[in-house]
Amino acid sequence: MEIIQVVGLGLVATFLILVIKEQKPVFAFLLATFTGVVIFLSLVGKIADVIGLLTKLAQEARVNSTFLETVLKIIGIAYIAEFGAQVTRDAGQGSIASKIELAGKVLIMVMAIPIITMMIETVVEILPS
């Protein structure tokens, strides 16, 4: 039961953070970050399983592997940006958090450029010149 482990870890970390926060808010922040990372790392194996399933499906559907790679990169960017934004927001820097999210969105759009280019090329090719 992974979920019990995760919840137990989160509860323990929360208590410890509550204890430290009185004395040292910086340590509390680092502890929160550390706990979040540990929880995510414990879950990343499961996400890899799901992604393996997606890759198999995509190979079955004969989707261009570049597309799947792009989509997976977009998910990765979303995860990292989300992580960073939440950590900074926990630290009380809401503006930096929103900038990180903005960067994530922009990078996702950049990642989507090849697909959009291919779409436009397809449409142009289909249309009689």
Binding site: L57, A58, L68, V71, G104, I108, M119
Partner: peptide, 30 residues
């Protein structure tokens, strides 16, 4: 069908709602 399934999985896999629209755009293009 498999692409739509992949899109649904990816929607589930996303961490938050902020990025959902972008990923939905890309998957729709695909």
């Amino acid at each position: 069908v498999i692409l739509v399934m992949i899109a649904a999985f990816i929607d589930l896999l996303l961490p938050n709602n902020a990025m959902e629209r972008y990923v939905k755009l890309v998957m729709g293009l695909l």
